[in-house]
Design a protein around this nucleic acid. Structure first.
Lengths: 207, 207
DNA sequence: TCACCGCTGCGACTTAAGTCACTCGCCCGG
DNA sequence: CCGGGCGAGTGACTTAAGTCGCAGCGGTGA
């Protein structure tokens, strides 16, 4: 039905789909692989806004408000991406209102996550953000073993830092500190949570 | 056409429309007055996400994704608000797809502003955020006088702090510091920008 | 096999941010 | 006219955050 206007394309890992400020041409839908949406600062800092996997989409927003992309997007691994041009999507939504509502729901979910990031940035310390990320990873990908809950970090410390809105050293240091406190066992990129209750407790209190 | 389902209501200043976490009942449209949308932390800190004036709307998002309100909203001054219930809005959008697209544009604009907040929070200092806010105010409401560009702060230092994601003292101190540097003339809530180029320059450099 | 490079682990240091505890001035109501 | 309360200014201090520089480790490719 929309046949003619889809474009399917392969990307290698680390390829840039678009940069913030670029005029918006259309919507990207992930068939396979993984994308990250991020802001970068002149000083080389980065803040990841979202990581999307298969089924996810990127740049739903500027398709509708006509402005430029507010952030950049790049692949994290080899990916297959479907591209839908802006005019096609608009007319499709006009013909199928329920699709427009779906889009609203997707955008809504994204908005929710952004609010969450703002909350973390303005109310919590790097340490707490790191702990929160670890707990999320443990729940999502962790395996219960005799030593504790075991899992791998999703990328380098540098990449973690980008997601937490900080720098590499702080990730490294805070991991070491959590280990020193007996909550974790860290071996480069693989983590064993020794004391999950103790870890979660850090999310509540302020000191 | 939708006549029966509108509710018009008056609010005094500082009244709470809803709190984060509340289940979403519907959309609020501002006829007159001013609203602020904000997150608050257990420690009494607040982060303002948006301030909306007449014609603006609040809570477009959760109406469509079905989740709870992600933040709280309160009036800043006496306001007259129109309320549209969730089901009404949904069915209206289904009948008038172009309205759904408009909603997407509105949500898009909001998303853009949130991304801007995230950028500021993770890449800039309190000082820079304050300067950025002053420059915005000067452009929006400032009057050119013989001494410079003159305008009033929008609320107390405490409220400024909430908008910048920091605490009162830092607003106060940074204003004094800018004055000491000869860029501003501060008299409680009224500001005179003496050196606009010098002020804007602080937005670029890192030191 | 060796050189290089990316990732990680520190230590030492600087600075922004936030906290605490007061003082002062102004306005408003009793 | 006086007292209370709020907003603002400020000094002293603590701590989180970030910067710089470097050393060690492990894998990859020439």
């Amino acid at each position: 039905m929309l046949a003619a206007h889809f474009v399917r394309k392969r990307y290698g890992h680390g390829e840039l789909l678009f940069s913030e400020g670029d005029p918006c041409r259309g919507l990207y839908i992930i068939e396979s692989g993984k994308l990250r949406i991020f802001k970068s600062s002149p000083n080389g800092r980065e803040q990841v806004l979202a990581v999307e996997g298969p089924g996810g989409s990127v740049a739903e927003l500027p398709v509708f408000d006509g402005g430029p992309y507010p952030a950049s997007a790049s692949t994290v691994e080899d990916s297959q991406i479907l591209f839908v041009s802006r005019p096609d999507l608009r007319s499709f939504c006009l013909q199928h209102p329920e699709v427009a509502l779906k889009m609203l729901a997707v955008v809504g979910a994204r908005l929710r996550r952004l609010v969450g990031i703002i909350e973390e940035l303005s109310f919590t310390t790097v340490r707490q953000r790191l702990v929160a990320a670890l707990v999320r990873l443990a729940q999502a990908t962790g395996k219960q073993t005799d030593r504790g809950i075991e899992f791998e970090l999703a990328g380098t410390h540098q990449e973690m830092a980008h997601q937490l809105g900080t720098v590499r050293e702080l990730v490294s240091r805070n991991l070491m500190r959590l280990q020193a406190e007996g909550l974790l066992d860290v071996e480069a990129r693989s983590i064993v949570v020794l004391d999950m209750p103790g870890l979660s407790a850090l999310l509540e209190a302020n000191p």
